[in-house]
Nucleic acid binder design. Structure first.
Lengths: 227, 227
DNA sequence: ATTTATTAGTTGCATTGTGTTACTAAGTTA
DNA sequence: TAACTTAGTAACACAATGCAACTAATAAAT
């Protein structure tokens, strides 16, 4: 006796920072259930073409946004009888980080950005999934270099600090922050490139070192441990 | 058009520390595929009785080990066409931590403990899953109180330190370790209880404070952050 | 031109946290 | 009672972090 059929989908929480507010990208569902509602982009696995669920998430992201290789990581699997009106279901959720410009540069016409603190009326348990993604982002941001994936290709250190502060919701000491970024050793200054157009000293532009361009982030050495 | 049927199971990586070696609990499969092989305990979701996959994992653990409330956490979902001879499949994996005595006290007659560094011939991608669980345990142990769940109800600080060292694979400074445990503030001495039977000064026995008896662990304050 | 305002980036110091060494404590064994 | 062993603590050196005050470089105002 094999199993009863279980509804099994992959959903993607696409996060970006507009100004200093975290947003999720939602799209309008074009089929039941909840046809017409705003929800997380997602869908069924295509077992003929998807190598695995990561591949399925990548495919959905590409289809809805045109993005080729954003930061993308499995978030977790959400399950139960209450989340889908059709019955017991599971969703394998991923979360992605992208610079907001890539979404606003209408490569992604169908997507709507919503502040993650004002979600209401999302179908399924999509609100829980978004909140789990935000929590994961906040947690990882407190000790790693993850937030760089919310910046574009070139950015200044003050901007990156502002990104951290927006995510963590509290101010960070400037000197400590710069020391930490230096210690991560993942950034390099763009020779002779500065941020222009402001009424003050121009800030140096940085970019990720080549080794970190893909879905990577840096974590400092552990707390415990020692000789 | 709904989806093709996908094989969907829940598997549990039950870890414990025997001496100073991490072990996984395996059981002999009683049905195809791989009938008779040692594999992770797992099985199909019972969508009529399982509230969600965590509930399914709890049920499987209870059925195979009698354990009621060990530390249990979702590890991740593993998927693809290559992992099951029957076709494209997914497994939602959980990992659990228990004191080794609870397994050896033959409450769990069918289980066999294998050192996690000597796994071979496991079916499906169960070796990958175990290694992912071990990696997660090592990582979390480097900054949290997670390893207490591998100790019994009462334990000494030298024993707990040995547990950390076994997991992390390197020695820890005694003074720093005790300071950190003190900072976690999750342990309390058992009044007047000491470890006996050794040819030296007896060590104070500790237990988890009530608030931490369940599946919890303590994480210190973040790296970045500060006014 | 010169001054003012504003933000970038650095330097030095105070404070805190961590690792090391050496001690005292409390038991067993010879 | 002396020797041995491990538990637990104290004192100090050193490293990491946070803070405040500085210099640097630009645009805007005077």
């Amino acid at each position: 006796m094999p199993q009863k059929t279980i509804i099994c989908t992959v959903d993607v929480v696409l996060l970006c920072l507009r100004g200093s507010t975290l947003h999720v990208a939602l799209w309008r569902r074009d089929r039941p259930p909840f046809e017409g509602s705003l929800a997380l982009p997602g869908g069924y696995i295509h077992s003929e073409e998807d190598v695995d669920t990561l591949d399925a998430a990548t495919r959905m992201l590409r289809a809805k946004t045109g993005l080729e290789s954003p930061y993308l990581e499995q978030l977790g699997t959400f399950s139960g009888a209450g989340r889908d009106p059709r019955g017991w279901s599971i969703s394998i959720a991923y979360y992605a980080l992208v610079p907001v410009e890539l979404i606003e540069a209408d490569q992604a016409p169908g997507l709507i950005l919503m502040p993650v603190d004002q979600l209401k009326g999302l179908p399924f348990d999509h609100k829980d999934i978004v909140l789990a993604a935000v929590q994961r982002l906040r947690n990882k941001s407190s000790y790693s270099s993850l937030p760089v994936h919310l910046c574009g290709e070139r950015f200044t250190l003050p901007r990156l600090q502002a990104v951290y502060e927006a995510i963590l919701g509290e101010p960070i000491n400037k000197v400590s922050f710069r020391r930490k970024m230096d210690e991560f050793d993942m950034l390099e200054p763009v020779e002779g490139a500065f941020e222009t157009g402001r009424a003050n000293r121009p800030a140096q532009l940085y970019r990720l070192k080549a080794a970190y361009r893909q879905s990577l982030s840096v974590t400092p050495r552990a707390f415990l441990a020692g000789s």
